[in-house]
Design a protein around this nucleic acid. Sequence first.
DNA 1: AGTCCCCACGGTGGCTTGTC
DNA 2: GACAAGCCACCGTGGGGACT
Length: 280
Amino acid sequence: AQYSPDLIYEALNNCIAHQDYFLKGYINIVEKDDELIFTNLGEFIPGSVETVVKSDTPAERYKNGFLAEAMFNFKMIQTRGGGIKMMFNEQRRRLFPMPEYDLSDQRVKVTITGKILDPKYAAILAQEDSDLTLDEIIMLDRVQKDKGKSLPVADIRHLRKRRLIEGTKPNYFISAQVAQKTNQKAEYTKFRGLDKSFYLEMIVNAVNQHDFLSRKDINKILWDKLPEIMDDKQKTDKIGNLIRELRVKKEIINTGTDGEPKWVSLRKINESLTGEFTRD
DNA sequence: AGTCCCCACGGTGGCTTGTC
DNA sequence: GACAAGCCACCGTGGGGACT
């Protein structure tokens, strides 16, 4: 990728000379796909990254020589000697995800991603009239990384109020506002999914068009229409719930077995019955 | 015969949203 | 702020097919 072995060695040398908040010890730098992962045994003195980023403490107080130097050497930042907050701002400038800190197990682990994860996240950062605070960007970063699962309720409320995110737990996603501004409407629809009534109608129509449909058939019909953010399990559950709803409403009925279902349209059965009567 | 897997089915609890 | 409604995820149970 973009980081050469020479740069890594140089960074390592500089790291050892420039540890401020890291205890001396073994420093590991791993380059993986488009990520750089720094690991260093020791304690993170400021306590939490949050306090550093959110406080208005002068940058130099929380300067982290090791990381800043390494990032400079990796050409990830433009100037030497920045603090932790600057790292966040640099990632912001490049429309990349925020640095990921893991402070568990008596070590400091920082993951810097060097690529755009969610185009909508990048688009919202790139907006010229964007008035986002760094806090908000960090929140949005959580949404692009884990659909906001790790965000406290207050943050979710805030983002929703600002119309930066939509969706409901556990499927938050970055809002349509951005999608419209950046001509990503089709992409947005794929993410948001469609009305439930649309899915129900699709099943009913499909069942009407065939003698019967297996569960696999129904899966195949709906799978690509469901939001991209859903994983396989969620899609399976979702379709199961849809089928269940139609069954309860007596729109469809399973004429097969549980193991090998054959879903048929009840309306169609009724029509064919009355049809036979009227024909003769 | 035993095991594994898929799925239906009914039930339920958590969460969000809308309404009053 | 209370309440209902809707949606989602998960559970246990059990039938049935495929495979060994």
